[in-house]
Write a protein that binds this DNA or RNA. Structure first.
Length: 355
DNA sequence: TCTGGGGTCCTAGGACCC
DNA sequence: TCTGGGGTCCTAGGACCC
């Protein structure tokens, strides 16, 4: 099994620099009010994504700024994936600008040459720097890719993987997140080697069962090497934070209406009807409550969806105590592809639910 | 390190059916 | 009538990723 992780370095920055030479070779960020993407030169200064632009310019006036151009990035992403598909159809997107590629058997016995060719082609045809990590599994390809940045290629073969594995820090693992890391640390576990004395039972006392499996697989070297080709999207969503926290009914209902509208807009020209609705509220103590319900076949318009959303909102009991509301959001779940209207065998058969 | 927004997947528990 | 087991579906919540 040979997995490649391919990823454009500083994606937004690289697209802007391709189009505009004066953005090159200097600290540069793509930012609206906060930094969306910082060049490696800017990162050296201490700039990072999420930083308010005003603070950046106050401290480092030499930083050059360009506003984000989302359509440009989407198109660059599409071109990138078209390029990936020339190497293998077995690819699992991680985001607009990165993917895992299963290149097993497609590398002519030389995955390094394949990866180098991919990088060269991306540079020549798209003008973008793509870093590639090559390894046995997705985790290790991702780790190799991290080491490859910027603009490099790193291979971690089985031998090297076995050397590196014990010292791997748990907080650096792909798939081990911010909820799990503190629990592991509290239990005295910091590296993969620390997992050696543990099994399903002992780890289950520390983290949830799915995470137990993830951790043991990493420790045993049987972690996931399956590249999953995504089907059609399963959901669209929208959420908005509310600041300051509110207990005003009209405010909460107003935000709910807004996010329903945004989510419906996101459906775009998708021919599928949303089959379920989820409503989420977050309180000022960080607690989240959700409600979910089917959307009857008759409900397809924003007003109808909003009625169901209001009912689910009431069901969260948000008015029952003194807490303020800090976020409202909705998710529209889409029917599986086989339920797309027009693909039903008997669309007008009597007695069938109309959904 | 944090915030914010858009996604995916998994699990526990209960209901229901056979 | 009672018991048990298995499968499936639904809901609420949790965790992760970029």
């Amino acid at each position: 099994m040979v997995i490649a992780h391919a990823d454009v370095d500083a994606f937004f920055v690289s697209v802007e620099r391709r189009d505009t030479p004066r953005y090159r070779d200097r600290p540069f960020v793509v930012a609206a009010e906060v930094v969306a993407c910082a060049s490696y030169e800017a990162r050296e200064l201490g700039v990072h994504a999420g930083m308010p632009l005003a603070r950046v310019l106050h401290r480092w006036p030499e930083v050059v700024v360009a506003p984000p151009r989302d359509e440009r990035y989407s198109r660059a992403g599409e071109e990138l994936f078209a390029l990936f598909r020339r190497y293998t159809p077995l690819l699992q997107p991680g985001s607009m600008e990165e993917a895992f590629l299963d290149v097993t058997g497609r590398d002519g016995g030389d995955p390094v040459a394949l990866a180098a060719g991919l990088r060269r082609t991306a540079r020549r045809e798209l003008g973008l720097p793509v870093s590639v990590g090559l390894a046995r599994s997705k985790l290790w390809a991702k780790l190799a890719g991290r080491r490859a940045k910027p603009d490099g290629l790193v291979v971690i073969d089985a031998e090297r993987e076995a050397e590196l594995r014990p010292a791997l820090r748990l907080e650096g693992l792909w798939g081990v997140g911010p909820r799990t890391v503190p629990r592991l640390h509290e239990a005295g576990l910091f590296t993969v080697a620390d997992l050696a004395g543990h099994d399903e039972t002992s780890l289950a006392a520390i983290v949830p069962t799915a995470m137990v499996r993830t951790l043991l697989a990493i420790a045993r070297g049987t972690d996931d090497a399956t590249v999953r080709i995504p089907g059609p999207r399963r959901s669209v969503s929208a959420q908005r934070t509310i600041s300051p926290p509110t207990r005003t009914r009209s405010t909460v209902l107003g935000v709910l209406g807004t996010v329903v509208g945004l989510a419906v807009d996101r459906l775009g020209h998708d021919p599928r009807r949303p089959s379920r609705l989820e409503v989420t509220v977050r309180f000022d103590d960080g607690t989240i409550r959700t409600g979910r319900a089917p959307l009857p076949g008759a409900v397809a318009d924003p007003a109808g969806i909003e009625r169901v959303a209001r009912r689910l909102l009431e069901g969260t009991g948000w008015e029952d105590d003194g807490r303020g509301v800090t976020l409202a959001g909705v998710v529209l779940f889409l029917a599986a592809a086989r339920e797309v209207p027009g693909q039903l065998a008997l669309p007008f058969a009597p007695g069938l639910p109309d959904g």
